[in-house]
């Protein structure tokens, strides 16, 4: 009788806990090194100067990978611009619920040059991920994607 009660209590407690966890983790990897911040606009204006160097950036989280949480985009201090923070699948999982919060990310900047076809696919994928309409005929130039591969991220409220 006691074992039955214990088992039922355990199962109901587990179900309650699993449904009420908040996942408040705000430090990923080693956490960001906030002591030397570089503005995203500074990096994006001359990205070649920062390639493969470790930098720390700060910005509002404006997009998060909906499926795997493997990337997020931080708003630049200049209008319309963002910088992608990308990790290998599973290394860090950025929660969708962090959108609108401020993130700090530390890591090397990398460049991915795309040809025109890859550019179209890349932009189409991004639009699909965000439920946005996309016309591939509007893409006439190949782009180079710059992204930061973080070793540490800190998300502040």
């Amino acid at each position: 009788m006691f074992q039955k009660k214990l088992l039922l209590t355990l199962i109901s407690t587990s179900a309650f806990m699993f449904s009420n966890l908040s996942f408040a983790d705000s430090v990923f990897g080693s956490g960001a090194d906030k002591s030397k911040l570089t503005a995203i606009s500074t990096i994006l204006s001359t990205p070649e100067n920062y390639l493969d160097q470790s930098v720390t950036v700060q910005g509002t989280i404006v997009k998060v990978c909906k499926k795997r949480g493997c990337w997020m985009e931080l708003a630049s201090d200049k209008q319309y611009k963002t910088l992608r923070i990308k990790v290998r699948d599973g290394d860090m999982v950025f929660p969708m619920t962090t959108m609108g919060k401020t993130a700090y990310a530390t890591g090397p900047l990398t460049a991915i040059p795309l040809d025109l076809e890859q550019t179209k696919r890349y932009l189409a994928y991004q639009a699909e991920e965000q439920n946005e309409t996309f016309d591939e005929n509007s893409v006439t130039q190949a782009i180079t994607v710059y992204q930061l591969n973080p070793v540490g991220v800190t998300i502040a409220d």
């Binding site: 806990m17 699993f18 449904s19 966890l21 996942f23 619920t97």
Partner: peptide, 13 residues
């Protein structure tokens, strides 16, 4: 509106 799926979000975590 983003809502974590109850229970499943924890299991996937």
């Amino acid at each position: 509106q983003i809502k974590p799926r109850p229970i499943l979000r924890s299991l996937n975590f």
